[in-house]
């Protein structure tokens, strides 16, 4: 029996065609009123890959992330998430797709009428999972971001960095297969920022999560593109630097400037790029 690709059920297609990228943009245009924000953007994030997105303030990074979730609709072009074209989906189909995406908002976007516990539990509670399981998962996630003590606090009582971490815990609950980080380390102290990067590395190397990591900080770029996580026999996680014997291939870097992608490749290529803008961006001068 023969079937063309389009006739196959999406779930089956995913199983038989593991090459379907996690996220794909094809010629996406977006303008607010007359102002062009994205001008024919195309890129892919492969399964298990982390894409670090660099770009100046206002270059359209958060907009790209919102497009992936279907919170905004593009004016033209196609956006595929796990091979499904989300620009053709209605709100209900989008809801299904969003279930496999975790999103860390730039400003946290916590529900300020709900406690930290309820914020983190939100997705599971909406799915009607029973209370014991939710509690177990919430505590596990809060321990992950080192905020167990804040479990009964309200968002208003937290510092900016703590809020960000609650936002991360909320995004990671339910083990989504795609995670979008919008500047997760902005406003965090260096050790905590480092922890956030380790978290992203663990998701990438140990859980096979595909992710987009928007950041301004070169430290993050360095950690994410040069370190990998391994587990020893006793389940302890270690981070090692890539060296001669192993080179990370699952982390890519992309730079956006005024709605265009001016660079898309590995971090080594980024470092040796001759573009003066890129050079200024990574060296800060």
């Amino acid at each position: 029996m023969f079937q063309t690709e389009t006739e196959i059920e999406p779930t089956i297609r995913r199983a038989i065609l593991p090459v379907v990228p996690a996220i794909e943009f094809r010629d996406v245009d977006l303008a607010f009123d007359d102002k062009v924000i994205l001008d024919g953007i195309s890129f892919t994030v492969r399964r298990g890959e982390t894409k670090i997105v660099l770009g100046g303030s206002g270059s359209g990074k958060s907009t790209i992330i919102k497009l992936i979730l279907g919170l905004l609709q593009p004016d033209a072009g196609t956006i595929l998430v796990d091979g499904e074209d989300i620009t053709q989906c209605d709100e209900q189909e989008l809801t299904e797709i969003r279930k496999k995406i975790g999103m860390v908002f730039q400003e946290g976007a916590l529900f300020d009428s709900l406690s930290v516990y309820d914020n983190v539990a939100y997705r599971l509670a909406e799915e009607g999972i029973d209370e014991d399981e939710i509690e177990h998962e919430v505590i596990r996630m809060l321990r992950f971001v080192d905020l167990e003590d804040a479990i009964d606090k309200m968002p208003i009582e937290l510092s900016g960095g703590m809020r960000r971490r609650v936002g991360i815990a909320r995004a990671l609950v339910g083990s989504p297969s795609i995670v979008l980080f919008d500047e997760p380390t902005a406003g965090l102290d260096p050790p905590t920022a480092r922890t956030m990067c380790e978290l992203a590395i663990k998701l990438r190397d140990l859980e096979g999560v595909s992710s987009i990591f928007v950041t301004h900080e070169m430290n993050n770029l360095k950690y994410l593109s040069s370190e990998y996580a391994i587990v020893d026999g006793e389940g302890r996680v270690f981070f090692e630097e890539e060296g001669d014997k192993l080179c990370l291939i699952n982390t890519k870097v992309m730079m956006i400037k005024q709605g265009n992608i001016i660079f898309d490749g590995t971090d080594e290529e980024l470092q040796i790029s001759s573009d003066p803008y890129i050079h200024r961006f990574i060296s800060g001068r």
């Binding site: 919102k66 979730l69 279907g70 919170l71 989008l94 809801t95 299904e96 969003r98 279930k99 995406i101 999103m103 908002f105 400003e107 976007a109 916590l110 529900f111 300020d112 939100y122 997705r123 909406e126 799915e127 909320r170």
Partner: peptide
């Protein structure tokens, strides 16, 4: 404060 976006993002 983007809470509506967050709500939609969480399905």
């Amino acid at each position: 404060s983007q809470q509506i976006d967050a709500m939609r993002a969480l399905g």
